[in-house]
Amino acid sequence: MGNLFSSSIGRKLIMSISGLFLILFLLFHMSMNLVAVFSTEAYNMICEFLGAHWYALVGTLVLAAGFLFHIIYAFILTIKNRQARGNQRYAVSKHEQGVSWASKNMFVLGLIVVLGLLLHFYNFWYNMQFAELIGEQVGPYGPADGAAYITSLFSNPVFVILYLVWFAALWFHLTHGFWSAFQTLGWDNQIWIKRWKCIANIFATVVMLCFALVVVVFFLRSLCGGAC
């Protein structure tokens, strides 16, 4: 394989594979969240199952590695690409026809996603898996009582809006990232390029709607005081 990962295409390959891995994780996370809408008990069972057990910790580490690769290489690529662009910028530059806005702003979108991620860690992971890891409760509820954390957080409209903005950024990021990953892998041609873009839009929309659904449902429930 030689110096594959020091080549421009090799670096993109890392973005592509790590990106696809994170997409798989999103699917898993989405399915888990949906459970909370139907049954908070079932959801808490999953939280229990994913506590500080060895398999969950290994999974978390692998996941973290995926994130790290994706983020670190995003930085490396962005810096190199800016160098390639040169110091002198165009005085006038316009948006080319047919080019998606997301594709040109993946790094900024990625930064927003990371910020949302940090908030999410603080809101959930710190209170749950981390608490279990150190063996003492750090939040108001027990570390496996995910449903309680969801219910309390999304009763606050500020967090609802912050999370929805986060999802929107992720939606944009996914619409480009999904098909782009296949393009980088070379699994693309004249015909599939349109199909992948279409699939990417559908996939991103479904996934992000499901995420948003959970937030909105819990917010609405909080409005009627848990009576509905």
Partner: peptide
């Protein structure tokens, strides 16, 4: 620089060359 699949090149190419060819290059290279 590296390709980030924006497709701006294809939009401005005077000969309308498709970025599907970039996919083939990726495939060939990988």
């Amino acid at each position: 620089g590296a390709c980030t699949n924006t497709g701006a090149c294809e939009a401005q190419c005077p000969k309308g060359i498709s970025i599907a060819h970039i996919a083939r290059l990726n495939r060939e290279f990988l």
